[in-house]
Each structure stands twice: as C-alpha cells, then as structure tokens.
C-alpha cells in the first residue's frame, strides 16, 4: 500500500512540474528490502547491492556511478552520524528498501533508528559537518546533484529516512 502511495505522489509531483505531460500509471516492477548492521565495511556492500539491483534497468555507466555514489553517501551518513557509542551493537541497523516502477524510476529508501537530525536544512548545506576535520561536509550536496529527487525525513531520537529517486535509462512517458 505504501508503495502505491509513493508512486501516486511522484505522479502528482510530475504533473505539477510538467503541466500536460501524461504519465503512465506507474506500477512497481521489482523491489528489494534488506537490513544490515551499521558497520563501515557494509558501505562497499550497499554499493554492490544497488548496482546489481539497478542493472536490471539497463543503466548507463554514468547513471550507475551516480546512484552508487548517492547510496554510498547516505549509508555513510547513517554509519558516521546516526548511532552513538551508547547504542548497543545489536540495535545499530540500517534498512534499505529499493524499488523501481514502469517509468524506470528507481527509488532507494535508507532508514536508520538513530538520533535523528536536529536541523535538516542546515545539515544539507554544503560544507556543513559535525564529523570533524576529515569529513568534507559534501554528503547531502552530492546526493542532491547525483539524483533526480532527494527527500530527508528525520525525527529526533527516532531516526532518519533518506529517499533517493532517479530515472534510469529511457523513460516511458507519453509526451
């Protein structure tokens, strides 16, 4: 049910932007849910995972690299920022939900149950970081420029969900 709603919202948003462009009713073609511990070794794993999943859409090398980079940034954010040392290892978990619809719109939801972001707007500013001097503060700006849509939903002490959306390959609009 929730997937349907997302597709509907995407459709509505597209209509708002593009005026009379008609979109085919988008149906989820394939999806994948996975959860793994928030360990830095899993960054490479999450990239491998999304590239294998996105490969079904026959992406260009550039599109594949873009989505890989964006997912890597989002997962890294969860690992670096979401969980304090006080959280037991068992509870440090990242959930990834990937799906694509008939319009070749690939969506990736990355969720953690961490401390949340106090000021999302500020966190998304280029060069803003709380991670010390060897973090560049470019995570969100990179995600933003490498995808078609970026949504960040965060509740303090509950967790953060980052949704990345990107059209892959040719799209099936009736224009």
């Amino acid at each position: 049910m929730s997937i349907k709603t997302t597709a509907m919202t995407a459709k509505l948003k597209f209509k708002e932007k593009g005026g009379d462009i008609k979109m085919k009713k988008s149906r989820v073609v394939n999806s994948l849910k996975i959860q793994f511990p928030a360990k830095s070794a899993n960054e490479a794993f999450s990239r491998a995972l999304i590239s294998s999943f996105a490969a079904q859409l026959d992406p260009t090398v550039e599109e594949l690299c873009d989505i890989k980079t964006a997912v890597s940034e989002a997962v890294t954010n969860c690992i670096v920022h979401a969980y304090d040392d006080s959280v037991p290892e068992k509870k440090k978990i990242i959930k990834m939900h990937c799906f694509y619809d008939e319009n070749n719109l690939l969506s990736v939801k990355i969720t953690d149950n961490g401390r949340g972001i106090e000021d999302v707007k500020k966190a998304m500013e280029p060069l803003y970081t709380t991670g010390g001097e060897d973090r560049s503060g470019m995570g969100f700006p990179i995600m933003q420029s490498f995808t078609d849509e970026l949504k960040v939903k965060s509740v303090l002490y509950k967790g953060t969900t980052v949704t990345l959306k990107k059209y892959i390959g040719k799209t099936n609009y009736d224009i």
């Binding site: 980079t69 890294t76 060897d134 973090r135 560049s136 503060g137 995570g139 990179i142």
Partner: peptide, 10 residues
Amino acid sequence: AFMDSSGLGL
C-alpha cells in the same frame, strides 16, 4: 575506481 565525499575529505 570509486570515490565519495570521504575521498574529498581525505
């Protein structure tokens, strides 16, 4: 083969 914002920081 791959670099993200951590590479920038580096």
